[in-house]
């Protein structure tokens, strides 16, 4: 788990490349590339991430684009603008959030519905 201080990409900063680690990451600036965390990723309102994200939890208040895989949960706040595919056991979307893409979750349908879906 994240034991250290969270890592902050400030609003005037931009990083391109691969970010991986065990610390929480807060993005107020811009990240392009790949983010792989065993902890939480927070994209603030000013933040913009264009990356494949493989994290424990992701919270989006700004802009995100890419493949998102969250081991625990993905939260799209009302200000979020997200394009991409999200896979997570729990996904929360607030009213006002904009999302375009696919959502992949385990859906346990009642037995009366014949197994549909992909």
């Amino acid at each position: 788990m994240a034991s250290d201080e969270p890592c902050l990409i400030a609003s005037k900063s931009a990083i391109r490349g691969q970010i991986s680690g065990k610390q929480d990451l807060i993005v107020e600036g811009r990240v392009e590339g790949h983010i792989s965390l065993e902890s939480n990723l927070t994209i603030e309102e000013s933040g913009s991430v264009e990356a494949d994200m493989d994290v424990d939890q992701v919270t989006v208040k700004g802009e995100a684009r890419g493949e998102v895989v969250a081991a625990r949960s993905a939260v799209l706040h009302a200000t979020a603008r997200v394009a991409g595919n999200i896979r997570a056991p729990q996904i929360i979307i607030e009213d006002g959030a904009k999302f375009s893409g696919t959502i992949e979750m385990e859906v346990e349908l009642p037995a009366s519905i014949k197994a549909g879906g992909a």
């Binding site: 609003s11 005037k12 900063s13 931009a14 600036g29 811009r30 000013s46 933040g47 913009s48 700004g62 802009e63 684009r65 603008r81 394009a83 904009k98 375009s100």
Partner: peptide, 10 residues
Amino acid sequence: SVPAPASPPA
């Protein structure tokens, strides 16, 4: 579709 914030350098 999603305007990028002006501040961070692109």
